[in-house]
Simulated scan of single mutants.
Amino acid sequence: MAWIVLVLSGLLETAWAIALDRSAGFSRPLPSVIFGVTLVLSMAGLAYALREIPVGTGYAVWVGIGAVGTAVVGMVALHESSSLPRIACLLLVIAGVVGLKIFH
């Protein structure tokens, strides 16, 4: 269960990062509220998962999921660069996250 919560918390990290960008420095109310809610839920999920998963592994997986998710949303929905080297680097992050799970 802890791993499922950790993955969901990583996805929520993507949501709050995108909402933070869309809040325009907290000047737009809806994205600002979405940021706050998803941030709290993401942190709560991380805290729950860390009761069973070592902090080094849990935090790295959480950050990895959030970073890759945010980068993918940026490339797909926000028209950021999606060059082959960037995609290769994201695949390396994914490989690292999978490796942390496998060798946990």
Results as ranks from 00 to 15, higher is better:
2 A>L: 00
5 V>Q: 07
7 V>G: 08
9 S>P: 09
10 G>H: 06
11 L>H: 02
11 L>M: 10
13 E>Q: 09
16 W>E: 05
22 R>P: 00
23 S>H: 12
24 A>D: 15
25 G>D: 01
25 G>F: 02
27 S>H: 10
29 P>C: 02
30 L>T: 13
30 L>A: 11
32 S>C: 03
38 T>E: 00
47 A>I: 10
48 Y>S: 08
51 R>K: 15
51 R>N: 13
52 E>R: 13
53 I>K: 01
55 V>F: 13
55 V>G: 07
56 G>R: 11
56 G>D: 08
58 G>N: 07
60 A>Y: 12
62 W>R: 04
68 V>M: 00
69 G>Y: 07
71 A>E: 02
71 A>D: 03
72 V>N: 03
74 G>P: 01
74 G>A: 07
75 M>I: 10
75 M>P: 09
76 V>W: 03
77 A>C: 13
78 L>D: 14
78 L>M: 15
80 E>T: 12
82 S>T: 01
84 L>Y: 01
85 P>L: 14
87 I>C: 01
89 C>G: 14
91 L>P: 08
91 L>Y: 03
93 V>A: 08
93 V>E: 03
93 V>I: 15
95 A>T: 12
98 V>F: 06
98 V>W: 08
98 V>K: 12
98 V>G: 04
99 G>R: 13
100 L>N: 13
102 I>W: 15
102 I>A: 13
102 I>N: 12
